[in-house]
Design a protein around this nucleic acid. Structure first.
Lengths: 213, 213
DNA sequence: GCTTGTTCAAAACAAATGTTCAAAATGTAA
DNA sequence: TTACATTTTGAACATTTGTTTTGAACAAGC
């Protein structure tokens, strides 16, 4: 395998990610992708067999990148209080998904993920499920530690959904905040969002589980 | 205009909604739509000019239906306490959007909406923006009344996003709860979800705005 | 230098898809 | 019934699009 071969492969993958993200699998054409990559139409057949092969390559590459960056538990978790862990969890969630949904590439990867969430391919389903499952377990353990209640308690699980729901909406909602009518200016400061979600969630968790801090 | 004409128009609209929702604009073909509606290919041209016209008809009809059912403020709002208003707001949100995202038609309308959110047409943008804006205003007024703080306060707006975020995730998350790894069985009881979001949000709002109930 | 395997470009092909149109069918009113 | 408007049909057309193929350019090994 020659160096040039790998390079054009990457060029096509990048162009394909953008095209699939913004126009979907059917909407994106291999001609358009190859043109954007400065390659000829035949190159898709050579490097990826066909359009499906290209799509799968894009998906698995993206999921690999994401899963590499998404270790839910920080390495020094042992020395942190439950409250600190919660704050770090929220910040990490916002930072990581924030960069995916509105990062340097204008949220292209986020668009791609949303399309996959709505209509998941096998590769995505497997990877994402595993990713989210670990994240959920860690979050529930934090809430459990915070409240002294077992993770099996309904209130703990429901609180977990509430926390994730807020985080997700602060990220995903950006795309539709123009529609939602919220003032979006303040939300550029991630740390302020983190502080809000932390305080709000702590108050909510305590209220739901009947504990007082 | 004859009666039969209106009828086939509706048949095509229904089939088109399903096709567009599950396969997107590009993915759905007019042949497939017409076949599902038991009509010939030419009928789209006759009733809707072309595929774009059909799509716009589907969108505007759906948005009309939705906007009719989404008056945010209940008629007897004056006689309710702020807390009751919040609970009703949450219940209404879950019920209405719940039926859209997982109702009798298997969430087809929700799928269509998600596609529009990601890549909004002009008709959708206008209608949805107006809808969400009224909903936001009403929610913020509730929170303002609840805390005695003006709606302009950042904490009030942030709390609004937290409440909406939870509601949205309890609905939308169903579609990906299988992926998320949460136990989804309990969530079939809407009233339990309402109670949780209400308690959690009250605790959160009070914690964030520094009030005690 | 010759061969071989790899990479790439462009033309060619076949299938699909949106659109058009003229004729047929159907319904309505006189 | 007759005449007219409305609706439906399905074949035909032009375009788009995924795929295949053929040959050239290029590097590496003998």
């Amino acid at each position: 395998m020659q160096k040039a071969g790998l390079e054009t492969r990457e060029l096509i993958l990048q162009a394909a990610l953008e095209a699939f993200a913004s126009r979907g699998f059917k909407g994106a054409t291999v001609r358009e992708i190859c043109a954007a990559a400065g390659q000829s139409v035949g190159s898709v057949n050579y490097h990826f067999r066909d359009k499906d092969g290209l799509y799968e390559a894009v998906t698995s590459k993206l999921m690999e990148e994401i899963i590499l960056r998404h270790e839910p538990e920080p390495p020094d978790a042992d020395r942190l209080s439950a409250r600190e862990k919660l704050r770090i969890f929220i910040r990490t969630y916002l930072a990581r998904f924030g960069s995916i949904f509105s990062g340097k590439d204008n949220g292209i990867r986020g668009m791609f993920l949303m399309r996959e969430i709505m209509d998941p391919s096998e590769c995505f389903r497997r990877t994402f499920s595993q990713l989210q499952s670990r994240q959920k377990d860690y979050l529930l353990s934090i809430i459990s530690e915070l409240t002294g209640q077992p993770v099996s308690k309904p209130e703990v699980m429901l609180s977990g959904i509430s926390v994730i729901g807020q985080c997700f909406h602060f990220i995903f909602g950006r795309r539709i905040f123009g529609l939602l009518g919220f003032e979006t200016g303040r939300l550029t400061d991630i740390e302020q969002c983190v502080s809000h979600i932390e305080e709000f969630s702590l108050g909510g968790i305590m209220a739901v589980t009947g504990e007082r801090k």
